[in-house]
Design a protein around this nucleic acid. Structure first.
Lengths: 213, 213, 213, 213
DNA sequence: TATGAATGAGAATTCATTCAT
DNA sequence: GATGAATGAATTCTCATTCAT
């Protein structure tokens, strides 16, 4: 993560850099790797063609950098904040998804970009994205979802499968709301409804899988 | 759906047509709309450039046609077979996913293509795909998932949310196995395991959401 | 050599192809590989950008093709005509250089191009040119310069070194007249002088190295 | 030649300047004018882009300067040492080529550069190189090769042509050993063989063209 | 002097689409 | 119907040169 900070681009003035990176992520998120042209990016970011290539060398490198940068930022502003001492896994998952929701309001381009990168099919970048994604999943599976209190579950429940059902549900709901297909441009409007619905799903899951209190 | 059959392409000899459509779907599925070139397609399908454009006019038209054709075929060979008289919705969903699994073995290119089309971000085709997808969801929500026996559920469960949890779970598991990211090349090998795991998830869901038998 | 004839370009109409190849060779000869642009070539040859790349794929491939094509042509119209039964090596060399002179009048672009290719320093093409050049030298050394009558030489002369001196002399004179540096645009004007001077050098060499008649 | 010393670059600190000029000459020699980038040069010479252009203004000016500088240096360290009192022209030529051989070991980049400059085809610099080259030849022809003892030659020999044969032979052999095509990386290894072979050629020429002693 | 970020005019290459045969 | 040569706009990438600091 630290090596990322040594990238040439960090010699660029802060505002200018943020504009450039945000523009690039938005464009890639909206149109995919191949369809996004470097011309679009430099035009909207108001820098010269040469400068973009001075910093990133190739369009591919730009994409890969953005992907790593976005993930790192998410890691630092998001996963670090998750309370691993919370032993009730449903509660922990609830915090995680609400945290993600807040982040989505802060950096909308970042999440859109990372999601679109996940489904990116262009072989030029898909391989690199995959490498990173594997490592990511490893982290999530091994750190975020470990050491929960399985005594909360009903006796006859396979807790591992139950955990997967929790994840599938939260992800499924989340995608149904914020997928690239039905993107909501202004999350803030929907924020409260989203928050409430997540809680409703959590409640249903709690009722179904946990022992009665 | 019937108008589709009147498309010029159906004047082409059967084998030749099937080769062409299958090749095109495989290529689009693997590399996305923009990255797939008409040259790739005509080379592998062994037809001339001119002929492809004689039939479809534009690459975009070809893509849209394939998408509608694939969905129609799936509809006819798949959703028609679903037994809507089965009132136990978990049982009905189980049949649906196993049916889909069998179909996946029969027409791998079709499902790969439809899935990839669903995540396609190129604006040239995404709009059209979306139109179709909306209508599709409408169908699924309104026909496939209606009239189930809610008396099977535990008393304090929100059955609508529970249904969504079932769908999220089955889709989530399905994608975790067969997503473009971690595609299993030879489904037949994995078929039995897949079948068994689906049943295990169904059992967990049944235990959690249904009244005790 | 025959495989060369199977190149895509030979499906192009004869006149059009000759114009294209001649234009390309002239440009490359005059300005070298890197400095010659595909735009220059297509503009003067009056074909589209796409067509050039349809036939050759890359600028590098075009260059390599031209080099092989030029050498093949020279081989067929030139080295084949050399009379290996002439045992007097000075006489044989004289015929060779006059033959080359005639060829230079017939295809000026070809020789200019091959010569310039020989001194080409761009790593993109220099390697391939070298490969071919090695094989070429092998041919010359082993076929063109074998089986001469060494009894014609004075007794105390190292005939192998003498042969090299002959070659160095003819090449040296030839280059001093026709090098890319001091190119004579219209060889015909200078033809007679060139012919006479070559004969004068041959006479001096004969006097110096051969026994008195 | 003296004006050259007044060039801005001579205000630069000696070591730094030598590094810069040597790096530039090596790069130009290896890849030619067009293919060599100013980036390569400043990176290896460890100076800034701005500084290079501060001293030379344009890449072309740098090249021309190097060419004149190299020739001047060669003149001063080489041609000055030639003994014009040696009236035996073969002996004088022998000294000249051995001197050149020694110099090649001392400044390999200089000779590589000058040779490559001689064959440089880029019109941007070829004209200037040519101007200088003409003047150079004038010098060689008029100073280095004048006032030799023609009475050493056999009676029936055209001495002017013989002199050219001597030059063609020495240059031809020299190029066959050290041309950019078949460059010998480490001259010192080959030094003795080279020296011996030159002497052998001189002996053959002496036998052929000079009166018997 | 010295720096290196910034520029933008080219250059190579791609590919959907047309059209004469 | 069928062909595939031909087109040229669009795209990525390069690099000499400038200029504010």
């Amino acid at each position: 993560m630290e090596e990322l900070k040594k990238h040439k681009i960090f010699t660029m003035e802060d505002t200018k850099r943020n504009v450039l990176l945000t523009v690039a992520m938005s464009k890639f998120a909206k149109n995919g790797y191949k369809k996004t042209t470097t011309d679009e990016i430099i035009l909207e970011a108001e820098i010269s063609k040469g400068l973009l290539f001075h910093y990133f060398g190739t369009k591919k490198n730009l994409y890969i950098f953005l992907f790593r940068y976005a993930n790192t930022t998410i890691m630092q502003d998001y996963y670090v904040l998750i309370d691993l001492n919370e032993r009730d896994i449903l509660e922990r998952l609830r915090s995680m998804f609400l945290l993600k929701l807040e982040l989505t309001q802060k950096y909308p381009a970042i999440f859109d970009f990372v999601t679109s990168a996940f489904y990116e099919e262009d072989p030029a970048v898909a391989v690199k994205v995959n490498e990173y994604t594997k490592q990511w999943y490893f982290n999530v599976q091994n750190k975020m979802l470990k050491d929960f209190d399985s005594s909360l579950f009903k006796a006859n429940i396979d807790t591992e499968k139950a955990l997967n059902i929790f994840l599938f549900t939260l992800r499924g709901y989340s995608e149904s709301q914020a997928s690239p297909k039905y993107r909501i441009e202004d999350y803030s409007k929907e924020y409260e409804r989203y928050r409430r619905e997540i809680d409703e799903y959590i409640t249903v899951l709690r009722t179904a899988f946990y022992k009665e209190a």
